[in-house]
Write a protein that binds this DNA or RNA. Structure first.
Lengths: 337, 337
DNA sequence: CTGTTAGCGCTTTCAG
DNA sequence: CTGAAAGCGCTAACAG
């Protein structure tokens, strides 16, 4: 049933080695031979068996993507971007989803899941334990993080500190002095730095402006709308003075906050300003002021670096800071007098 | 560097054939031998090479998932569910993203992308052309659709007609007689039936209640928030009488509509009721009344059937209707008098 | 520029 | 229950 390389070779009156070279675009094949091989391969509908070439060459032309879960705006876009450039270059994308660290028990990611299956691994915005990192490094395939820094490997992401600073300074410039914070934290991943970076930036910006950081205005959520809503409720329910503005560590939480504010009749931005980070696909429609990033580009950039590295250009993997941009929309305004 | 099956065989004083059998749990291996093999494999950190076993057996233990794009709530959850059960059974998930048909030019999905790489293919909510279907069937690997029916292959999805009917009848039961419709359509995919099924159900339910279908209240969008918002704006801007309720073919569009209504000061549900389909993760927080479905379960179910089929139980792939449920929340109420 | 020849690491008859 | 041996389909030296 399957037409193999020998069929093509026979049909084209050349050796299998020549067919292999011709089809892979290697040098040392005359143009006429190459054309002939290409034509007969085409006419026979020949496609090389990935298993066979993988076994023979030791390369699988597949990159693995390790992701905590898929139902998150950022992840979907990064993967989409990676898949686009990977596939355009004849590479496959093998997905490893951990099924969520939110459930507390992160499925064990073992070196064996990866072994001999992929030529490179991308770790999506996710902290790995020291032990896991050690294992991964031991496989000695290129390793790259996307979405945040991971110690011991290069990464593609925005400067989270600077982005958070931009958000908070926008609020301060507007005249806000009572600023709250929805912190996007993830319990199980102590290692993962993005939340911490944003938090530090928030605190620094506040301190620089001589503003007070009130614990009652700072709540932690897990990046999701539902958690944003819950965290917002806790702030709104707190006795005493309310903040006039809230910075949310993710747009999804900011949206949850907005929903909760609406439910309570709190008017945004008249009574309360909100700024997020991400530019989630819902944000423009919701009119949410945010610091936007472009995960699709993160994915493309990461894939490009990986391809270069695998293509034989060493040291193609480098720390890469992607751009971000403050997008002022309708949820921020000067504080009420 | 790599420890291979011969190392294990040597170490355990058995043949490679026995190692292979023992490790794969095949019968005809004594328990003592199996234990010994398992132990030495473990101690050597042996993992079989997928390329080699794929080449030798003709099976890759990988299932492909063809998806139009990833940044959609439904897709992410389905994939997550599939990946969970697939991986628990030693299967891998290879992702093929078409990069979106919304851009008009769907990247050509050729049989060659699939060939010899996967043991089965899942097509996610996506219409394929007759030609593409023919090609896929020719590869003779099991084919399964998820999210909607695809002619010529079994599928896992909800009864879209019944779900839409439930939504509309809820509106009618509330007393609404002027009902609008945000149609979730996809231009490039004439073949894909889900939008049509929902539309027919909408029209039928209206007719059954003796209600008028006004073109000015029916707008088409592409499933996204942004489009929902645009479509809603078109309805709101239309001269003449406004609907008192709107049924949206997807929660994402319903949310867009809600954002637009808010922007214009239209009060929901006092002035306008809204009901969607999906139970998107944002819907509960937004208080959106909707007909919920559980894509994670769709994915698990699909993967289970595939595994059974690949495991040697023929005819495991069958048309499977998944449950849905009307979830009444805060966006529906009787029409204003 | 092209052909020969070994494998790559496993699975799978077929014997025993 | 276990072993020997023949490939699976391709790539990668090495010749020529």
């Amino acid at each position: 049933m399957g037409v193999s390389i020998v069929d093509v070779a026979a049909q084209a009156n050349v050796s299998t080695a020549t067919v292999s070279r011709a089809l892979r675009g290697l040098p040392r094949v005359s143009e006429s031979t190459r054309a002939k091989v290409l034509a007969t391969a085409q006419s026979l509908g020949y496609v090389a068996s990935p298993s066979a070439s993988g076994l023979a060459s030791g390369r699988t032309r597949t990159v693995g993507v390790l992701v905590p879960f898929l139902d998150r705006w950022y992840f979907g876009h990064v993967i989409e971007g990676m898949d686009q450039v990977l596939r355009d270059n004849g590479y496959n994308l093998l997905l490893f989803s951990l099924g969520g660290y939110r459930h507390g028990k992160m499925r064990r990611f073992t070196e064996s899941m990866v072994r001999k299956q992929i030529d490179a691994l991308v770790v999506l915005t996710l902290g790995l334990s020291a032990e896991e990192l050690r294992q991964l490094h031991r496989t000695d395939i290129p390793l790259l993080s996307v979405g945040g820094p991971v110690e011991g490997c290069s990464g593609v992401y925005i400067d989270d500190g600077a982005a958070a600073t931009a958000a908070v300074e926008h609020l301060i410039a507007l005249g806000h002095r009572r600023i709250g914070y929805l912190r996007a934290g993830i319990q199980d991943e102590k290692n993962f730095e993005v939340p911490a970076l944003r938090t530090i930036a928030f605190e620094t910006a506040l301190a620089k402006a001589g503003l007070e950081l009130r614990p009652a205005w700072c709540m932690v959520g897990d990046f999701t709308v539902a958690e944003g809503q819950r965290a917002a409720a806790r702030i709104f329910d707190a006795p005493g003075e309310q903040p006039t503005a809230i910075f949310s560590g993710s747009d999804e939480m900011a949206l949850g906050l907005i929903f909760e504010a609406q439910r309570r009749g709190i008017r945004i931005p008249a009574q309360l300003s909100v700024v997020g980070i991400d530019d989630h696909e819902f944000s423009a429609s919701a009119g949410l002021t945010t610091v936007g990033q472009k995960p699709l580009e993160h994915g493309k950039t990461a894939a490009g670096m990986l391809l270069a590295e695998l293509g034989g250009t060493p040291h193609s993997l480098r720390e890469t800071l992607m751009p971000f941009e403050l997008m002022v929309r309708d949820t921020t305004a000067p504080p009420p007098r």
